[in-house]
Design a protein around this nucleic acid. Structure first.
Lengths: 102, 102
DNA sequence: CCCAGTGTACGATGAGAGTCGAACATGTCG
DNA sequence: CGACATGTTCGACTCTCATCGTACACTGGG
């Protein structure tokens, strides 16, 4: 795995970036799924996604770059946390719309 | 022009549709520009856009289909109205983020 | 009636994004 | 050490979307 995990602060994310990241249904499903459990309890591989491992990895990278996910390596697994408060402070209401999507 | 102007109610718009429509910078600039003046006072051709006439027409169609614009033909011109209240009722806060974009 | 102005429709093009399989790096455990 | 699991990287492919030029439809005014 990449030893250097680069994170983007939600404060530094543009609306363009945010909307592009959220415009993909797979990425929104990741966000909804990670929101249902405590921080850093879901590894990337535990998500039920209709795409290959390589594609899933790509989506996690995009979400991290958009300030939506914080990731933490523990052993061979990479755990995720939804940056709910910070992202909501940057784009009020936007994340709520995604999480409320049925 | 197409004599039959088909509009989509914001209530019938999916989050996917909304995000896709808003993920384009040209379309967001149209929304911001139309928001600065009274309803049905801006014709499609009066917007300052960095694209051709054909492309601009396409963007207006997308915005109308996403429940963001209502259009009205008067003479040879097509006037626009931002469906602010209705769209905000469907996706609270989303349009505000776009209009607040500097 | 003709002409200018507004906007759409159509076909083609190019760039970008999502997707995948395979190979690779890293960590854990027996 | 060796086998296995997790996740990334790479190259390639596909397909959608934004874009444009051109042609067309419609309106209003001389």
């Amino acid at each position: 795995m990449a030893r250097t995990l680069v994170h983007t602060e939600p404060a530094d994310v543009t609306l363009q970036q945010a909307l592009e990241a959220l415009a993909d249904p797979v990425r929104r499903s990741i966000l909804r799924e990670v929101s249902t459990e405590p921080d850093f309890t879901r590894a990337c591989g535990t998500f039920d996604l209709p795409v290959s491992k390589a594609t899933a990895s790509h989506h996690f990278t995009v979400l991290r770059a958009a300030g939506l996910l914080e990731q933490l390596d523990r052993g061979p697994r990479r755990y995720n946390r939804l940056r709910r408060a910070e992202f909501d402070a940057r784009f009020p209401g936007l994340l709520d719309l995604v999480l409320a999507e049925n």
